[in-house]
């Protein structure tokens, strides 16, 4: 039977919560094994980053939605963290199988990788709950938390966020079709616009690529 928009939204939220009920707020034993296999154990830096970004997210969420909603922001962030660890473990298992390695020191000690992955997980949670994060008493104005809001919150470049999307979708088979389409729209928005904004890492990569190819052209300014 066709669902009303409200019923569809409630089902999506329930589905997400059910999936994440079995996930943990901390790295699993399997994840800890991967951390221990690293040349430099990233566990402490990962935990500290998660803690730091919780405060950042809670603050920005409260600024966007209302100070009274800070705890709602914290709850949504915590769901995002569970998804983050769950997807990270799945990604590492796939990479271990693909590359036949167990030492992912460079990847797991990379701040950009973790921030991008966590941002993607939190984006999934925020998008599942929808645009309106306010209490339903009608006293608050609607607040737009839709993408690319999360990039501003975590001070993340769109191009770096883009890098995790496809692997995220591959690593999390429980993502609904609606959520996959949402992430695909994020990809398109990045490819068509956000990745080309001033300061994007894309320009440096293009420049390096041209230098490797031996071309001596001066890179065009980003404004053109």
């Amino acid at each position: 039977l066709p669902q009303t928009p409200v019923r569809a939204a409630m089902n999506s939220i329930q589905q997400l919560i059910m999936i994440l009920n079995s996930a943990t707020d901390k790295p699993s034993d399997t994840l800890v094994r991967y951390f221990n296999n690293c040349t430099v154990n990233p566990k402490d830096s990962i935990l500290k980053r998660v803690e730091r970004l919780e405060q950042v997210f809670k603050k920005k969420f409260a600024e966007a939605v209302g100070q009274g909603c800070a705890e709602i922001g914290s709850q949504r962030y915590k769901l995002g963290v569970r998804l983050y660890y769950r997807v990270m473990e799945s990604m590492l298992k796939s990479e271990e199988e693909r590359l036949s390695v167990q030492n992912f020191s460079k990847l797991l000690n990379g701040n950009v990788f973790h921030t991008s992955l966590l941002a993607c997980a939190v984006e999934v949670v925020v998008a599942t709950y929808g645009r309106n994060a306010s209490p339903s008493d009608g006293t608050s104005a609607e607040t737009d938390l839709s993408f690319p809001w999360i990039l501003n919150v975590f001070d993340l470049k769109a191009f770096d966020f883009y890098k995790v999307i496809e692997s995220f979708i591959k690593a999390e088979p429980s993502l609904t079709r609606v959520m996959i389409k949402h992430l695909e729209r994020c990809e398109h928005q990045i490819m068509e616009s956000l990745a080309w904004q001033s300061g994007s890492p894309l320009f440096e990569l293009i420049k390096q690529s041209k230098e490797r190819e031996g071309q001596a052209d001066q890179p065009e300014p980003s404004v053109t």
Binding site: F104, K106, G110, V112, K163, E166, S167, I180, K181, E184
Partner: peptide
């Protein structure tokens, strides 16, 4: 994932994307 276009090739994954190969 039927409608989603997977762009990564067979030998590509998250390690390459973050320059960790």
């Amino acid at each position: 994932t039927q409608d989603y276009h997977f762009g990564l090739e067979e030998g590509e994954g998250i390690s390459e994307l973050f320059d960790c190969d």
